[in-house]
């Protein structure tokens, strides 16, 4: 292994740079985001069986979700209570942290036959907004690929019951699908690796 002096100096310099003090008002992004890990996994990579992955989620999706929890406009078990502990600025800081993490696709238990059938429904009804199998952190679409199946099912149940508002385009598509087709497409999303 050879390395010249100039590179060595640059390397040392960069290491020291990384360690310089950064003055932040309030808690740092990692300090706040790490408090989520006990339920959503280290760096937002959930070990399941139901808590969703936050890793790689778009900033806008994270912000919208937390603000909806805070305002009580999205059904929740516990997130409504937790979201109320943060200012909008703090939520945006955490959003930046999770958006900076690579998308994580968990090894999610699912029904392989349903997932296969769901692929067709996905192409026809979902792919336009939830592109690349639901793995692209689009602006307002959450990451669905490799998400834990119970969470996908709960979310869809809330949409269908009218407890969570669907974007117009989504409502139009969901309306056309049978329960079996929806079940299949959720298994499809869960199956994405």
């Amino acid at each position: 292994m050879g390395c010249n002096k100039k590179a060595l100096v640059a390397l040392i310099g960069s290491v020291f740079m990384a360690g310089t003090t950064q003055v932040l008002a309030g808690s740092s992004a990692s300090m706040m985001a790490n408090t989520c890990a006990g339920c959503h996994g280290t760096n937002g990579q959930s070990a399941g069986p139901a808590s969703p992955n936050l890793a790689g989620m778009s900033e806008s999706y994270f912000n919208d979700s937390m603000k909806a929890f805070k305002e009580g406009t999205r059904p929740a078990t516990i997130m409504d209570r937790i979201a109320k502990g943060y200012s909008d600025e703090q939520i945006e800081t955490m959003a930046g942290f999770f958006a900076g993490q690579p998308v994580y696709k968990a090894m999610v238990p699912h029904d392989a036959a349903k997932a296969k059938a769901g692929a067709e429904t996905y192409d026809k009804s979902c792919a336009k907004c939830h592109d690349e199998g639901g793995s692209l952190p689009g602006d307002d679409a959450g990451i669905l690929a490799g998400q834990w199946l119970p969470w996908l099912q709960y979310s869809m149940a809330d949409f269908k019951a009218g407890n969570r508002e669907m974007p117009k385009k989504m409502a139009k598509q969901v309306e056309k699908l049978s329960d079996a087709e929806i079940d299949a497409v959720l298994n499809y999303f869960a199956s994405q690796k």
């Binding site: 890990a37 339920c39 070990a47 399941g48 069986p49 139901a50 808590s51 209570r81 109320k84 119970p150």
Partner: peptide, 28 residues
């Protein structure tokens, strides 16, 4: 204004979800 308890009036559906989230808490 943050935190607090599950509502006494929360539905059986939401209580069942809390079991799933309790197990998620444990795994994570």
């Amino acid at each position: 204004g943050s935190g607090g308890l599950t509502s006494k009036d929360s539905s059986p559906e939401m209580r069942a979800r809390e079991v799933d989230y309790a197990y998620s808490w444990f795994a994570n």
